[in-house]
Design a protein around this nucleic acid. Structure first.
Lengths: 345, 345
DNA sequence: GTGAAAGCGCTAACAG
DNA sequence: CTGTTAGCGCTTTCAC
């Protein structure tokens, strides 16, 4: 009934025997062709082709103690910001003939650390990671990995790792200042998971802009939305049913933007007449939404592309070379929608 | 500067030496504890713990000729329908302590086949796949894989593989009949990639419903949108600028639904007054869109959950057992929006 | 119940 | 240039 999974693959020995050479010659033919005579190489390739021989990557990894596969670890594979990045990484990896694993940690740090140690045990060749902590302890765990690590989107203090992301501080400032210019003074921020790099940066940008405009900061307007849709929805419900509710809400990522918008709609508020909404990160098909959100766009493709390049460079260099970490911080881009307007008198 | 990737992992020999036993005893302790005396096992575990020993999965795979890792291969990782499925698979795999690879083929069949053969060479333990062809040749390639294969979403003829998906024929019929009941007779279908299982089923459902209602089928109203947003957008533009334009459009997946909606908006048509829109597959945050699309919802979590169960069962059974293929066809669910209305007179 | 030994398929000195 | 050889870390008979 079911397929037979047994038809043995030809091994390097089969090729060697049939080509009348040794296994090392076959191996060399595929790794460093220059060390084999043109003629031998041709025969070997021919035989290999005929037999349908492909080097066993598992054996290669075992021998080399390192695989050519790398891993991308993200907190939420359903977040379109990350899928955009993944698309780009996928294309780059494909072009370079690398394979990679995508893993979703569901924002579970325990799971993330377990995963990383498993990958480490598998002798994974490298990791592109959105770190879910900024603590020293966490940083140490990452440093113990025996493969190159590239951070994306979120950074960690210390700068020991390659990093690519967007200037979050600036992003938050741009939106905050836009709202201030419109005349808002009661601007809430739906903030992300406490302690994360971007969370801190976005809060700082927000605070700096308010202070710079001479607006006193109302701490009760800063609430934790955990970068998640549902929590953001609940928090927005709470914010908007307060007597001293804000006139504008700035959400620190796309999913929280959606959550906030849903709450606004459900409460029957009109946006932007009753409440202004602005968010960081794009939402797919946001052009079909009403109102269109004013937002900061990040260049996800660039993030993915650069992260991949950083990683490939390190993987190619091997553990020997210890180049100084590189970092790219991209500029955020403001995209005006119609979800923001001057506050009602 | 950069991390040292060299700190060697303890091997089974280190554990054996320190525990004063042989490597086979250590191995046995972890695989079949019943064959080792309680006491020895305890010592071994203790030493292993102390050393931080973890069996090297690469070596295990090489020896066993099969890894515990499985792969999920989809055409478009950015399609939210697939991310929903992946979320579920991820949770299930995590619970069962399996690892998996996600791969995006970008709808490139060549790439898909290359990928599958690479995975095969890696001795991957199993594959969950959305097949991108229905041909015999393709089917044969799949059968040659030496690991269990579970099909999801799209099926292939022959029924040699486990399959889980939704009744696409019924899905298309439900929407078509809904439109007919509203009084539409010129209903276009934006169809998917020709030849695919669901494409065929959805077309059949559509045709059957029209014919059943005594409506003659206008072949020019059936156009190829390739399951892609952009193509659907263009095709809709074309459809709506025809003198004999349809009064309703049925799109065969979510991305095409978005594409069609964008075209409708850009042309200044009102939906549903000027044109009715209905689609198969949900769009995230569709509740924030205006109008709200009338659509068929599939139970993505169920698809992911069942596919995983099928695969794990086969992986656990090993290549020995050859159970007959299993299949689950889920019922589609109609979700009424306000994008459909009776046609204008 | 435990250990010795033979590889899984490949790579990389090292010789020739 | 090519072959011999010794493992990578683990599993698995097969003896004891």
């Amino acid at each position: 009934m079911s397929a037979v999974w047994k038809s043995l693959m030809p091994t390097i020995r089969d090729v060697a025997r049939l080509a009348g050479v040794s296994t090392s010659t076959v191996s060399l033919t595929f790794s460093d062709a220059s060390r084999v005579s043109k003629e031998t190489a041709r025969t070997v390739r021919q035989v290999a082709e005929m037999l349908g021989y492909r080097p066993n990557p598992v054996a290669q990894s075992l021998k080399r103690g390192q695989s050519l596969m790398f891993a991308v670890v993200v907190g939420d594979i359903a977040n379109p910001f990350f899928t955009s990045i993944l698309k780009k990484i996928s294309a780059a990896a494909n072009k370079a003939n690398y394979q990679f694993i995508i893993s979703d940690t569901n924002f579970d740090v325990e799971r993330e650390l377990t995963l990383l140690s498993q990958l480490d045990a598998q002798k994974i060749g490298g990791v592109i990671l959105t770190p879910s902590r900024t603590s020293d302890e966490y940083s140490r765990r990452l440093q113990n990995l025996r493969c190159p690590v590239v951070l994306m989107d979120q950074n960690i203090p210390g700068g020991q790792f390659d990093f690519v992301g967007t200037d979050s501080r600036l992003a938050a400032s741009m939106l905050t200042e836009h709202l201030i210019r419109l005349g808002h003074t009661r601007i809430a921020q739906l903030s992300g998971t406490a302690g994360l790099w971007n969370t801190i940066e976005r809060l700082e940008g927000y605070r700096a802009s308010l202070t710079g405009a001479g607006i006193e900061i109302d701490e009760s307007l800063i609430v934790d939305g955990g970068y998640q849709l549902e929590l953001s929805y609940q928090q927005t419900m709470r914010l908007l049913t307060r007597p001293d509710r804000p006139t504008a809400i700035l959400t620190a990522n796309n999913l929280m933007g959606v959550g906030a918008m849903r709450a606004v709609q459900e409460l029957g508020f009109r946006c932007p007449e009753d409440i202004s909404l602005a968010t960081i990160d794009d939402i797919p098909w946001s052009t079909l939404m009403r109102p269109q959100l004013t937002m900061i766009r990040q260049d996800a493709a660039a993030v993915g592309g650069i992260a991949t390049r950083y990683l490939f460079d390190r993987m190619a260099a091997g553990s020997s070379a210890s180049t100084a970490p590189r970092a790219t911080v991209l500029a955020p881009q403001l995209s005006m929608g119609n979800s923001t307007a001057p506050p009602k008198k």
